[in-house]
Design a protein around this nucleic acid. Structure first.
Lengths: 216, 216
DNA sequence: CTCTAAGTTGACTGGCCAGTCAGTCCAGAA
DNA sequence: TTCTGGACTGACTGGCCAGTCAACTTAGAG
């Protein structure tokens, strides 16, 4: 056998490049040649590893997801305390640093592609399920430890994740009404309201410090 | 002067067709000929009214929005009571009937297009701002009437709208974890927790409604 | 009736790009 | 050293489609 296989490495290069390009110009405008250029290779090579553009994109979406999970694995070790753990996860999803922004862009493109593609819907289902299960289990742990209010964890997870998705989208769109800072404030407010006996914002008194931030 | 102008009518036909096609196959796959066919006219006519595909899409996005507003205007008259009004609005945004689903599809396409198009970002900003202002004012009215808990209305509006966007997306994607019914349930849970003295969940005790609102 | 111009048509073109392919390169096996 | 086959290249092609355009239709003005 000839050269040692460079397949894994090359695939990774290409997928990474594909995500960058998608994030920058969108799936619609993406040309194979762009990806090749970004990956420092030729369009022929891209086709050597991925039969069709569709296959490439599907792989890129998957790669984007596993990558996101990996980048967050350490959070589970760093934070044992459920409230801290949840907060750390939510914080890590705020579209702040370039890498997270890029991942969100790719994610958004996946959503819209998936609206007309059952395969991608399945991918979304897996990913979303995983994320939802994680959040729900953290909530459950927190409740068992008496640290979170006793709402239905699945409802809480759904509501929280939905909110993050919706807010992130607006932040990514450069909304003046929903900036990164404001998103963070809203998330913190919500997280605070989840915890038992959190000081800042007695549920009944209205305009606490928490809300203000978001307001701004 | 020749024939009476049919411009307004024809434009409307085309925009409506464009929204239908976008909803069905997505912006990326949309061909001018598809729109023309759907509108019962020719591709030449589409170009007669809209110089470029981009111009057509921008107009379609705008049309989709004003249309959504119009379809909801009656809700303001039908419901004076803030909690009812808010509930009616939220209910009307659930992706249930085909028309609402179509509007959501178009909206999702706009989002992703806008990620790479400042003009569309501006459009999103206007629309999102309008919707956010409406929700916040309903919340404020409800608080003045002593019917809603005294959270910052802007935070509540942002959290609620973000949540609706994120959940709707999952419903549109045909998620098994997030069906229309489950979305409705989550929304109702959140709305309930917003109101003062709603039975279900006493505010200060762990399972309080107050916090839930935001929580969810 | 004639003239005018808005409105409409669909064949056509020019550019773009996914995917193909014939050929090159090269690491290691024999 | 030769041979093998995986890896890689980039010119090329075939199909697609936005946008153009020359020709036509029609409704009202004069």
């Amino acid at each position: 056998m000839p050269r040692p296989s460079v397949e894994a490495e090359r695939r990774e290069q290409i997928l990474s490049a594909a995500c960058e390009v998608v994030s920058e110009i969108g799936f619609k405008s993406l040309r194979i040649a762009d990806v090749a250029g970004r990956a420092g290779t030729s369009s022929g090579t891209v086709h050597y590893y991925f039969d069709t553009k569709t296959a490439l994109m599907r792989a890129a979406f998957e790669w984007n997801f596993t990558r996101s999970l990996e980048r967050r694995r350490h959070l589970l070790e760093e934070h044992q305390d459920p409230p801290q753990r949840l907060r750390a996860f939510v914080e890590s999803y705020l579209p702040g640093d370039p890498e997270t922004v890029r991942a969100w862009h790719v994610w958004a493109e996946l959503w819209v592609e998936a609206l007309h593609d059952p395969d991608l819907q399945e991918l979304n289902e897996q990913v979303y399920g995983e994320w939802r299960r994680l959040v729900a289990s953290i909530v459950r742990d927190g409740q068992d430890a008496g640290l979170f209010r006793d709402e239905d964890p699945v409802v809480v997870a759904n509501a929280l994740i939905g909110m993050i998705d919706g807010l992130a989208l607006q932040v990514l769109l450069g909304s003046r009404s929903m900036t990164l800072e404001r998103m963070r404030a809203v998330c913190e407010q919500v997280l605070r309201s989840l915890t038992v006996g959190s000081s800042a914002q007695p549920p009944l008194d209205g305009r606490g410090a928490g809300s203000t931030a978001a307001t701004a």
